[in-house]
Write a protein that binds this DNA or RNA. Sequence first.
DNA 1: TGCCAGGCCCTCTTTAGGGCCTT
Length: 212
Amino acid sequence: MQGKAADTVVVLDFETTGLSPEHGDRAIEIGAVLVERGEIAGRFQRLMNPGFRVSSFIERYTGITNDMLKGQPRCEEVMAEFAAFIEGHNIVAHNAAFDRRFLDFELKRTSRVYEGDCCCSLLVSRRIYQDSPNHKLQTLVSHVGIEPVGKYHRALADAEMTAQLWLSMIGRIRQNYDISIVSFELMQELSKIDRLYTHRYLVSLSDKQRSA
DNA sequence: TGCCAGGCCCTCTTTAGGGCCTT
């Protein structure tokens, strides 16, 4: 596999006012970690004011209250700063389709476009940790034995734990299949293949690398 | 105030339905 190694990425997580930017929901917090060569090399965390009150459900779910959002910068201001943080990096998120929709929506409001590639840790985890009771971030953190960081449903904490999950999946592939360099493209491919084909796919890749 | 989405994945499937995930 050619391309960038999968252990150099930006792992991100949005907290939002709801599930759908197409229905008026906005981002209220972005958290992200820059992972370089398997280690956390940078962090980004900002609250942002969506321009309206968030629901009591979201206040309870995230712990981010309307009082906390008072006086915070608008989304456009934060996203301009965040665009610089992710520039030149591939991104990873847990259930990435959700975060990608908000990323694209919020960047578009600042006339920006993210041009890198994206991979979903949830989809990869369904293949690598097939024995996990479910594939919620919190369950996987416990299943894999990752040390929890901060509070769940806060953006930076979730991004840090997703990053640890991502690295643990890379480590498992390296160790179990003797694949020396796990590329971002390999992780993307894994997220798309038939779940039941995972083992055969990785054995075949390992054999190919050995004979090359 | 209350409501909203979308893609994956499984199965009692494929001319479909519903749970899983994210907030």
